[in-house]
Nucleic acid binder design. Structure first.
Lengths: 137, 137
DNA sequence: AGTATCTACTACGACCTGTAGTTCCGCTGA
DNA sequence: TCAGCGGAACTACAGGTCGTAGTAGATACT
């Protein structure tokens, strides 16, 4: 559970998360500032320290976790992209009363593409498959 | 279509939208700054001009629409709560690639209550009912 | 020892939001 | 007719976030 809200990410912050997520498999130990700078900072003409500051702030916001590796820190995403997105969805829907939420969902679906709806259905089906029936409590 | 992103609302802005939404039926012509101030500003000890500023900004962000009524402006929500929420949901999911989105949805559902899932299914069912089958394009 | 590398700390401008004062204008009643 | 009052427009300011980076100090490599 994140201590801080950590809602909206800035553009650079998002890019950093993107980088960390996309290399998480290849680098489970996390990445250093230098590596992140090399990957996404150089091409943008950003100073090394810029990435350092940003990663530092992100650690304070619990967006990333860091661990010492010699003198350097290794940064790892604190949540997967899916988790963060899901969190955001819940946040958006969270403060709505039942009927309003229902209406919002309807609107949402109404503006979704058939592909998106299929994805949603697939996810629902998969959920059902995984949780035989603990519903109808 | 909103010209501006108009993403996250501040607390006061949200409270104002809430007030406008909840009185939209009774006051389709919209509400004046005075009325909004009386409803939600006085109890918070806010100055009249504070609400004026906030409503003015919200109009510039296309969160609300305004129309002259004598010397005063009448403010109306530019979108329903459901629309705004739906927009926000799309925004959150929008930048995800298919498989990532799928995974995010799964996470989302996984952390949803059975009631929420039922609401979602109900919304899906209602959608199907309304659009017989323009899917499978 | 000298140089490269890394962190820690500080800074600053842009933008957003909450909060409000000031100024000016028109209407209304005494 | 003139003083208020209601209202709008404009200006302001502080606190927070984010992008951006410099500088200083510690450490490690050669």
């Amino acid at each position: 559970m994140p201590s801080t809200p950590r809602n909206r990410l800035g553009d650079l912050e998002r890019a950093v998360m993107e980088e960390l997520w996309s290399t998480a498999d290849a680098h489970p130990e996390g990445r250093t500032v230098r590596e992140v700078h090399d990957s996404i900072g150089v091409e943008r003409g950003l100073a090394y320290t810029t990435l350092m500051t940003v990663l530092d702030r992100m650690a304070k916001k619990d967006l990333v976790t860091r661990e010492r590796d010699g003198r350097a820190w290794r940064y790892t995403p604190a949540s997967t992209r899916a988790e963060l997105t899901s969190e955001s969805l819940h946040h958006t829907l969270g403060e709505l009363a039942g009927d309003t939420r229902r209406s919002a969902l309807l609107h949402f679906l109404d503006e979704s593409t058939p592909e998106e709806i299929d994805e949603l259905k697939a996810a629902l089906a998969e959920l059902e498959a995984r949780r035989p029936d603990q519903r109808r409590a």
